[in-house]
């Protein structure tokens, strides 16, 4: 298989890593009445891409870079702490680790020879972007491909949740994603560049409402999505 097929496999929402159960904060934003239609969904996706998307992609790319370094375990531990420091909401830290755990489960089953033992798992599992970085390195993907996969998934997951939660026309939601494609490419390129920097300088784009929404969502009695 060529690396580009592997890229498509890893980025595919059908890759069994639990993506279907996460709305990327959209369920809470819908619940708060802030996302109601295509236009507000588009704005949501743009903001999410520029914040969580950039940070996640940069950390995935940085983990990919760490995979080949002599002090891999030390670097991964540092990335873990740096990502925690960028995730002010405990609910979001939990979600990232839960998704990391799901991806790791799939990764271990699909690439049994790849090593993941040095992933920091304190706090309920390894952070998802770190797992993604190591997994795509194991799969032979490049660093830019890794960043692209991460950025892409932060918008596609929320977009498909929008279709399910708001009953939006799936063709028009897909058109939104097409409109966003160039921004997604740019975000991935920026994340890939940033991954060359020392960990403390990695992007830290924050979104106050993402934190607030996540903590509200965690208190809901009935949730359709895990995040």
């Amino acid at each position: 298989m060529t690396p580009s097929t592997l890229l498509l496999l890893l980025a595919d929402g059908r890759f069994p890593a639990g993506a279907h159960a996460h709305s990327g904060g959209l369920e809470a934003a819908v619940g708060a009445g802030r996302v109601t239609d295509l236009a507000t969904l588009a704005a949501f996706l743009r903001g999410r891409l520029a914040t969580a998307g950039l940070v996640g992609a940069a950390f995935a790319a940085a983990a990919h870079r760490a995979a080949g370094q002599p002090d891999r375990a030390g670097l991964l531990a540092l990335l873990d702490a740096e990502l925690d420091a960028r995730t002010a909401a405990e609910a979001l830290r939990r979600v990232s680790r839960r998704q990391g755990r799901a991806l790791l489960r799939a990764g271990k089953a699909v690439w049994p020879t790849a090593g993941f033992a040095d992933l920091p798992t304190a706090g309920g599992g390894p952070h998802q972007p770190l797992v993604l970085g190591l997994l795509s390195a194991a799969a032979g993907l490049t660093r830019p491909e890794t960043a692209l996969t991460a950025a892409y998934q932060t918008v596609t997951g929320a977009a498909s949740a929008g279709v399910r939660l708001l009953g939006l026309d799936p063709y028009r939601v897909q058109a939104l994603l097409v409109d966003l494609a160039a921004a997604c490419d740019r975000t991935a390129a920026e994340a890939d560049r940033a991954a060359g920097e020392p960990p403390w300088r990695l992007p830290a784009a924050a979104a106050p409402l993402a934190d607030i929404h996540a903590e509200v969502h965690a208190t809901w009695e009935v949730r359709l999505f895990a995040s």
Binding site: A17, G18, H22, S23, A102, R164
Partner: peptide, 21 residues
Amino acid sequence: AVETGCCPHTAIRDDIGANLD
């Protein structure tokens, strides 16, 4: 409890990680 993102069949058939967790 496992949240299924409005896809109950996916959670028990295609993408079972959350249930296994």
